[in-house]
């Protein structure tokens, strides 16, 4: 039994039972399939995380987002005072995370592709786009540029899903996706 030394002193020379050998082979091949699947998705799949990343000073990123809002602001989100920025199709959209908000609200067009710039001004945050259920980690000092194409119109929420202190559960942002040409 397994709490005794092997019965045969030269256990490494014993033949492996065929049944076990078959299972080891099947399990190994399944591992290869799963490994290849990730590579195939990089070549064929349409959901791969961007690796376009820059180091950025949080203050610099903040001023860029503010300039972006200045330029593209089309109103405010309800009575919250949070600006709504309508991004030109194919353009660069900015969103920052800070204790405890995602800023600003973005308005995108369905079917158009955008370059979304994400970063944090303070701690780590989790960009969780719901109900699409896409989740990306956001670090301070790192600007992550993600090319994204909304495929459905509607109101989407950005829940923070990285714990960021006692106001964490209040940190929620918004992305509005409108039909092409129906902005505002």
């Amino acid at each position: 039994m397994a709490v005794r030394p092997p019965e045969s002193r030269v256990w490494w020379n014993e033949p492996v039972p065929r049944a076990e050998l078959v299972w080891v082979t099947v399990a190994f091949l399944w591992g290869v399939v799963m490994f290849v699947m990730m590579i195939v998705w990089h070549l064929q799949g349409r959901q791969n995380l961007s690796t376009e990343v820059y180091r950025v000073d949080p203050e610099v990123f903040r001023s860029r987002v503010e300039a972006f809002v200045e330029r593209y602001k089309v109103g405010e989100e309800g009575t919250t005072g949070i600006p709504v920025a309508r991004v030109p199709p194919g353009g660069d959209a900015y969103m920052l995370g800070r204790l405890w908000e995602w800023w600003p609200v973005l308005e995108l067009e369905k079917g158009k592709t955008y370059r979304l710039h994400l970063s944090s001004l303070d701690w780590q945050h989790g960009f969780s786009l719901q109900p699409v259920n896409m989740n990306i980690q956001i670090h301070p000092g790192i600007e992550h540029v993600i090319t994204i194409t909304p495929t459905e119109a509607g109101v989407f929420s950005v829940v923070c899903n990285e714990f960021c202190g006692v106001g964490h559960h209040q940190m929620i942002g918004r992305i509005r996706v409108v039909e092409p040409g129906k902005g505002g």
């Binding site: 259920n133 929420s157 829940v159 899903n161 714990f163 559960h169 209040q170």
Partner: peptide
């Protein structure tokens, strides 16, 4: 699988500025 965040005190977002309804 439905997207609910871990380490989250209130997924009804009752005291948040913006809201969201999980299914």
């Amino acid at each position: 699988t439905l997207g609910v965040s871990r380490r989250h005190w209130d997924i009804t977002f009752s005291d948040a500025v913006l809201g969201f309804d999980y299914p």
